[in-house]
Every structure is written in structure tokens, then in C-alpha cells.
């Protein structure tokens, strides 16, 4: 039966009317109008619905909303907006770390939880942490680069040095000259 449930999402308190077993995903998307968490499988297999609860990445398609009263839920909307993206989101933008992007909000939240727990992860630690989130477009290496970029930006912040500018490496024509046809005009390293 439907009841009132108090939720804390992105630092704001909401009262929602929902059956207690309703997966958090539907409440976030339909009742709170948040677009970030996506329906991918409803089975806890793909990670498209990943959000952070009390600092841990969780799969919102499986979590009953009643279990979340009083806990701090963070979605990708809590990290920034399209106009004012947060540091991790800026890193994803700077690295072109999305093709269709359907998995990306889940990737961002998984990475957010990782960097909070382990601010300076190794490549292997990043890959292991991200292993539960599926991407079908093959954007993995951009996503890994975005997470590394965000980690070094955070380090820069802590050291009191400015983080790399958003879009660094995306600048106009960097490494992309137009030489004579037949020459290797552009060189892109990943």
C-alpha cells in the first residue's frame, strides 16, 4: 500500500507517496523528475541506475524506497548542472566520455563514490570499481580518462593549484593540422 516516505536527495528533503517496495529508481525519475538515473535492466546487472547512498554506489533499480528513509541519496543532478557541471562532470565533458551517454550518469556516480573513497586510484582499481557498469558504445577508455582527469584535478585542488581547465585537449585544432593529403595529418593518442 502506498505511504508517505521521507527522502533526502541531493541535500533536499522530499516527501513521496509510494508503495514501500517501489524501487528508488522510479521515485527518482517519476516523482522527483530527476533524469540522471536510467532504467537499463531492472535486474541490478548493468549499472545505468547507479546512485550514491551514504557514500556508496548502489543500484537504484533494486533498492526499495522504504529502505532509504533518512539516508543521504546523491544523484548526478547533485554534482552539478549542464550549465554548471561539477568537477567530475567537467572531466567527462572534457574527455568526450559519452557516445549515446545512456550509461553515463551511472558511470559518473560510480566514479564519484570511488574517488570519495579512494582519491588517487590506480588504473586497475578504477577498472575494478567500474566493472559492474556496462557501456555498449565502447566509450570505456574515455570514461577511464575522465576519472583519471578528475582524480588529478582533485589532487590539484588539494595542493592549492588550479585544476586543468575544462576542455583542455579539446581546443581548436590541437594536434590536428591539415597537412598535404597522404600525410599523417592528425595524431590522436588515447
Amino acid at each position: 500500500m502506498t505511504g508517505s516516505i521521507a527522502l533526502s536527495v541531493n541535500g533536499r528533503r522530499h516527501m513521496v507517496e509510494a508503495a514501500p517496495e517501489t524501487p528508488l529508481l522510479y521515485v527518482l525519475r517519476d516523482d522527483l523528475g530527476l533524469n540522471g538515473a536510467k532504467f537499463g535492466c531492472g535486474l541490478g546487472q548493468c549499472g545505468a541506475c547507479t546512485v550514491v547512498v551514504d557514500g556508496r554506489a548502489v543500484l537504484s533499480c533494486l533498492l526499495p524506497v522504504a529502505a532509504l528513509e533518512g539516508r543521504a541519496i546523491t544523484t548526478v543532478e547533485g554534482l552539478g548542472t549542464p550549465e554548471r557541471p561539477g568537477l567530475l562532470q567537467q572531466a567527462f565533458i572534457a574527455e568526450n566520455a559519452a557516445q549515446c551517454g545512456y550509461c553515463i550518469a551511472g558511470m559518473v556516480m560510480r566514479a564519484h563514490a570511488l574517488l570519495d573513497r579512494n582519491p588517487d586510484p590506480t588504473e586497475a582499481e578504477i577498472r575494478a570499481a567500474m566493472a559492474g557498469n556496462l557501456c555498449r558504445c565502447g566509450t570505456h577508455r574515455r570514461i577511464l580518462a575522465a576519472i583519471r582527469r578528475a582524480a588529478s584535478s582533485r589532487k590539484g585542488d588539494r595542493a592549492g593549484t588550479p585544476p586543468p581547465a575544462t576542455g583542455a585537449g579539446q581546443g581548436q585544432g590541437q594536434g590536428q593540422g591539415h597537412g598535404a593529403a597522404g600525410a599523417t595529418a592528425g595524431r590522436v593518442r588515447s
Binding site: 530527476l34 533524469n35 540522471g36 536510467k38 532504467f39 544523484t75 548526478v76 543532478e77 554534482l79 552539478g80 548542472t81 549542464p82 550549465e83 557541471p85 561539477g86 562532470q89 567527462f92 565533458i93 572534457a94 568526450n96 566520455a97 559519452a98 551517454g101 545512456y102 553515463i104 550518469a105 559518473v108 576542455g167 579539446q170 581546443g171 581548436q172 585544432g173 590541437q174 590536428q176 591539415h178
Partner: peptide, 23 residues
């Protein structure tokens, strides 16, 4: 043309903008 303009659709996709039919 020939420049790596950042993708126009990515900011919405990484920050919960209304980017998809599902939204």
C-alpha cells in the same frame, strides 16, 4: 571544420539534463 569541438550533447547527458526520450 577539422577542429575537435566538444560534443554539444554531453553536458546534458552527464548532468541529468532532459537528454533522452525517456526523460
Amino acid at each position: 571544420v577539422g577542429r575537435s569541438l566538444p560534443r554539444v550533447d554531453i553536458p546534458g547527458k552527464v548532468a541529468g539534463g532532459a537528454a533522452y526520450l525517456q526523460d
